[in-house]
């Protein structure tokens, strides 16, 4: 029987779930995105009408669907880790594929949204709101792409040689994927709902 190995005990300050390095990255990312989002709110005070009119040009349905896709994908990621801990390799493969499917669907919806905006001429230079919109959402998309590459690498190991898989590595990958959720949960209300 194939078993997945685990190196460290949790509850230690040095070993948060996913590893200390991943959490340092998460805090740096949150500070970066948080800082830009706060700057966006500050700029909106100078041009309230521009931000309000521009926000109405966005399709809230796209944003809501993408939020739901990332949440469902995060749910399957949590299931992947949970089933791996229980040594249920086949189930974890299925859940990991579903996690990645959620990521690909997110990118699909985002592509449709981007094409729509480009067709309408709402590009990065259109106004301040759309400068922030493109900068923040594209930066987030890059994170999702990186997350998918990491998950693909985990899936490859899980399929080809599951005995080589280390649980901490999967937890770190899962933590990165959930970070994409966290960032989106901050972007979604401020870009699509608030102004």
């Amino acid at each position: 029987m194939t078993t997945i190995s685990k190196k460290h005990a949790s509850k230690s300050i040095l070993y948060p779930p996913g590893g200390i390095l991943m959490w340092i990255i998460i805090y740096l990312e949150l500070i970066t995105f948080g800082g830009v989002l706060i700057a966006m709110v500050l700029f909106s005070k100078d041009e309230p009408e521009v931000f309000q009119q521009s926000r109405l040009l966005l399709n809230t349905s796209f944003g809501t669907i993408n939020t739901l896709l990332l949440l469902v994908s995060g749910y399957f990621m949590a299931l992947t880790v949970s089933t791996l801990k229980a040594q249920k390799i086949q189930k974890s493969k299925l859940y990991l594929k579903l996690t990645m499917l959620g990521g690909f669907l997110f990118l699909g919806v985002k592509t449709i949204e981007y094409m729509d905006k480009i067709d309408l001429g709402l590009t990065m230079g259109y106004n301040t709101f759309f400068s922030f919109y493109w900068m923040l959402t594209l930066f987030h998309v890059i994170h999702v792409l990186v997350g998918l590459v990491i998950l693909a690498s985990v899936l490859r190991t899980l399929v080809k040689s599951p005995e080589k898989l280390i649980l901490e590595d999967v937890e770190a990958s899962a933590t990165f994927w959930h970070m994409c959720d966290l960032i989106w949960l901050l972007l979604f209300p401020l870009i699509y709902l608030v102004f």
């Binding site: 949790s10 509850k11 937890e171 933590t175 949960l185 901050l186 209300p189 401020l190």
Partner: peptide
Amino acid sequence: MILAALKFLVVAFYFMELRDAH
């Protein structure tokens, strides 16, 4: 914004298992 913060915490504590961390 409060609902977004709530969702953020739920994802961190339950999906990311932060509730088991230090």
